[in-house]
Design a protein around this nucleic acid. Structure first.
Lengths: 264, 264
DNA sequence: CGGGAGCTTGAGGGAAGTCAACCGGGGTGG
DNA sequence: CCACCCCGGTTGACTTCCCTCAAGCTCCCG
């Protein structure tokens, strides 16, 4: 996280005056924050010890008094039926806020678990609410909540109306965009999801996930190797999944990055 | 919706000084708004002509430059697959904002249709953003977005991990709470959803919705009569649906109502 | 070397989908 | 004013996608 200034091209010096664990996360991404607001945010957070893989960041019904922002690693939100069937409602990637709703609600109505080792920074609820008096920060929270919502709406479309292979393809397309791996074919990224976790995200059994993966492999749409996934034909994968990246509103994110850094 | 002042006990007269179409809607509910903020909101909205049943309030991909708040009637948000399979991602009841995300995004990534005749008020995006400088209004928007999110997460659990009858039961429980019909058994409310719309909300075919309704009827969990539904055994219905009202955060709404009106 | 986590395979079953009718009622146009 | 039509609901027969159950396999790690 300690990043040295000389790795970054000479632009926009003032914006670089500090180096925050939040640098480059989605919290800063939408481009809604002034330099002052970024500093204020940065001053309010505390960096936590890394959290082990497969451990609980929070349990269902738990009282949580701080926002947790993932800065590294993968995690997920989930809910379970009384019989113990689990549905993942969000995959949390670096930059995501794990529990934005804690801003307004006292108790979680879901649980949070890590997938890989995960580092988070936390922002006490009270300070977050105070910071939300900065219009840019308030708008950033709102923006993040709305994107969460857009993603979840697509998941609902997948869960309710798509076949296993379509759901899987759609999820992979979503992840490739959210992770910011290039649009070109032959996308490739670390993929720490077990088939069990995939099943719980896609509303399928692990066994059916396995068979669906085989189908995708045999059609040349994915290749996996040691927790890495390759998408050799993103165009066709998007067709299969019925994926249109528009809903992720990554464009505004790109635009913001460009405006702030003059790069990328 | 036509509420006359003399139905309301003599309390908190100042809070009643104006009568807004927003009165009693979820926009005012969380209790986050000062009297001044309510006035500001009220001054920014315009009441629209009632919209016919089964008509489009907005299409997918459409540019929308105002928030639309449902004040009467039922509507829904939906998305479709390329083959035309439709999934409803939200049922919009009086008080709901149909397109909160228009606050931040230019184009919808869903469509909005009415179910019954619907009246809406609209709030131009620019004015909404300006109003969001009031902390209470900003927090109200955030609150509404977060509740939307909580509801959608439960829908994902239903769609991914519950049987037809469980999904149906859960939806009915959710609606009974959101509509504010009493907790007691023998809840009863107008129910304008066709089996087709229900199917699109629950991720089922109309035919299977029909059979599921028959099952619920035969088990004495619902009774229908001319677009009205009766839930004769809400306790068992909640058991069947695995429903816990906590996630709707209606409590804070009740608390707010109590604080403002001293009633209910 | 044993054990567990994650992956793979096969056989059989079941919940929900598909296809194809039919019904009943309310609106409408001839 | 009646006939017609269309929408929404209902029913039956058949299909299918995905689930369940039950193993066995392959790593990796202690």
């Amino acid at each position: 996280m300690e990043q040295s200034v000389h790795h970054i091209p000479f632009v926009s010096r003032t914006a670089l005056r500090f180096s925050s664990p939040l640098q480059g996360t989605r919290l800063f991404d939408p481009g809604l924050l002034s330099h002052e607001e970024k500093c204020a945010l940065d001053g309010a957070i505390t960096l936590k010890e890394p959290i082990k893989p497969h451990s609980y960041l929070a349990r269902e019904e738990q009282r949580v008094d701080a926002l947790h922002i993932v800065t590294d690693g993968w995690a997920f939100r989930y809910a379970t039926t009384k019989e113990g069937r689990r549905q993942i409602s969000a995959l949390l990637l670096p930059g995501d806020i794990a529990n934005l709703d804690s801003l307004m609600f006292d108790e979680l109505d879901y649980g949070i678990r890590t997938i890989t080792e995960t580092t988070i920074v936390s922002l006490p609820k009270e300070r977050a609410l105070a910071l939300a008096r900065h219009p840019g920060i308030a708008r950033t929270f709102t923006w993040l909540g709305l994107v969460d919502n857009a993603i979840l709406s697509r998941w609902a479309l997948s869960l309710g109306r798509k076949s296993a292979i379509e759901r899987f393809a759609h999820l992979l397309c979503e992840l490739s965009v959210r992770l910011g791996v290039g649009d070109g074919n032959d996308s490739c990224f670390a993929f720490p999801l077990t088939q069990e976790v995939l099943g719980d995200a896609l509303g399928l059994t692990t066994i059916h996930v396995n068979r669906t993966m085989q189908q995708l492999r045999s059609e040349g749409l994915i290749a996996t190797d040691n927790r890495t996934i390759i998408l050799p034909n993103l165009v066709r994968l998007r067709e299969v999944g019925g994926f249109d990246p528009h809903y992720l509103h990554a464009a505004s994110r790109e635009r913001a990055l460009q405006a702030v850094w003059g790069i990328r």
